[in-house]
Design a protein around this nucleic acid. Structure first.
Lengths: 337, 337
DNA sequence: CGGGATTCTGTTAGCGCTATCAGTAGCAGA
DNA sequence: TCTGCTACTGATAGCGCTAACAGAATCCCG
């Protein structure tokens, strides 16, 4: 066993093979734990690899074996609490499988999404998990002919490329509206993000308005925002709505953060919640547990979505193409009962 | 120009070359925008690539060119607001450069970090950005001999492998303590995470206690938590401290989320903030803007850290090995002035 | 109008690894 | 002793792409 050659070129299998006196092939086998190698040889090789500080080149390995242990995950944003939790679910399941998630962020921009998908596919991952069902035609086409499992997550109201795991946002909106109406609220306003490409928020609003219409009602006001601290925006928007429509009796927020901001504002104003005014959000974020009063919400099954999607990629799932999850309404303390 | 061959094998340069009647090399040149190609040929090739739906194989390209446009980013967690903002800074700078960040999450586990670093290095990225200065010896060694720029971020109190960009957490803790003492508080408690591997929180506490000691003071109480909703934990811990030490007059939290929880709790209890009791957190998270009263905090320069780190990787920075940033203390409304 | 530059395209030889198959021992059973 | 295994190791041939150079075609200017 020769001493480590300390030249400055990056190490290859060849260096380990030289150092341990066996063929490159045998080193490769040891390092991948594949095929039979005698314990003595194995030890010798590991020792050499360790002292050299050898790190295999997966690029070459992947090219040779036509196998890449990467799973592309394409999501719109990391800064709202929802996707990190999806990631947690994905990691949990992938952890044992040798598969590794690689995250790409699109900022809700379709062109950016297309670019990210292209970039990821060019690394020939073993699977792709993409948020949403709406993509550019080119992106859809690329995914369709990639020849790997594709899972579109979060939403099932639409036509998936391959697999889909998620909830029906339209139905979620409808359910919330029904609960609100059943609780006797009648002058209802909507407060949400001004994001042309947040299709899921849009579908929730659609479902919500459908259910209102069915009950002969319509939104008495709506208010949109974009950017900034969601909590703060929630306060501001709530103030705006209440000054425009003082007798509004329910505020439906497109997400929990602005809802929480609204709730804090109402409390500070001394408005009686949920009697004088009711509130509801969407997502079921953990943050709500810490608020003085629990905001009504609907959990989006984020962890479970991540898990199921990863199971499909890992080949641990059944043959169903679409997995629908059912969010539960958490009435909290902001809808009267 | 032949019609697309619709066999089910994945496309290669060869397919595009066949379809467009030029050599593979020329196709490669067109697709990478490198070298001179006549406009006519270029158009022909692009057309063929487009209709075939060709996606280049970066694995092969990277192996051949010995260049990988990936930057490994290793961070402990995605679920606290701090790292997403660092990511934003990184993406901002990397966006124009052709470099792409790849995120790995360690959950504050050193062994996990070592594994993630190994995995990433095996893809031969162009650079690595790693949170923190504390790593396993093996991880440090791998980074040191990877032959690529390494940037350790967030913290500069220690010995970097290569570059470091961050703030001095020890100093941050000290500064906060000095401000608190100057404001006349004397019975000070600390509330933080029970994470043996959150070295930065630990350093802040050290600095904090040093400054207290210098003023002849010591913490009157300390309370730790792990897991769960930070906001909720903040409430619970605050309640616990106040019941144990009723005359405590300042609460120093290791992060803004638990601080916010504590603040909400104090308000709900009718405790006079900041006269009866003062509060401070750490991080400067956007969320605080939405609270009824602004928590005193210290921003951690997250965006700027991300930007500077990316600039170093992209070769857009000066030669300095360590970049120290200086957080500013934001007294908010929870320290008396 | 010829030498040399310029523009464009093709040929060749790997990048560092793994799949595949071909050995070489060693050993049990006939 | 020979056959037939099993256990182990090595030689060879790519994976799909790009660097580097070589050649062909065109152009420029004195």
């Amino acid at each position: 066993m020769k001493p480590p050659t300390d030249t400055r070129h990056t190490l290859t299998l060849r260096d380990v093979s030289d150092a341990s006196g066996v063929s490159e092939m045998t080193v490769s086998r040891v390092l991948r734990n594949r095929g039979d190698v005698s314990p003595a040889t194995r030890e010798k090789v590991l020792e050499a690899a360790r002292t050299l500080g050898y790190v295999p080149n997966k690029i070459a390995g992947a090219l040779a074996s036509q196998r890449v242990n990467l799973v592309g995950v394409v999501i719109p944003s990391l800064s709202n609490m929802v996707f990190p939790e999806v990631m947690t679910g994905i990691s949990e399941v992938l952890d044992g499988t040798g598969l590794q998630p690689v995250v790409g962020v699109t900022n809700y921009l379709p062109d950016r999404e297309e670019a990210v998908i292209y970039e990821m596919l060019s690394w020939r991952p073993s699977g792709m998990i993409v948020a949403g069902l709406e993509h550019t035609p080119a992106a859809r086409a690329m995914l369709a002919r990639a020849g790997i499992p594709i899972v579109e997550i979060m939403d099932i109201d639409g036509d998936p490329v391959d697999h889909a795991v998620g909830i029906s946002h339209r139905r979620a909106g409808r359910q919330m509206a029904e609960a609100i109406i059943a609780a006797g609220y009648r002058r209802i306003a909507f407060l949400g993000t001004q994001m042309p490409n947040d299709f899921r928020a849009k579908k929730r609003l659609q479902g919500f308005e459908e259910a209102l219409a069915k009950a002969g009602l319509a939104l008495v006001d709506r208010e949109f925002y974009s950017g900034g601290s969601a909590l703060l925006k929630g306060r501001e928007m709530t103030a705006a709505v209440l000054s425009r429509v003082p007798d509004v009796d329910f505020l439906y927020y497109s997400n929990d953060m602005i809802g929480a901001g609204g709730l804090l504002w109402c409390e500070a104003q001394g408005l009686k919640v949920p009697d004088r005014i009711g509130l509801a959000g969407f997502n079921g974020v953990e943050l709500l547990d810490g608020l003085p009063r629990r905001l009504a919400t609907m959990d989006a099954c984020r962890l479970e979505i991540g898990r199921k999607a990863a199971e499909i990629i890992a080949g641990k799932a059944g043959p169903e193409k679409t997995v629908e999850l059912f969010p539960t309404l958490q009435p909290g303390d902001t809808i009267r009962s």
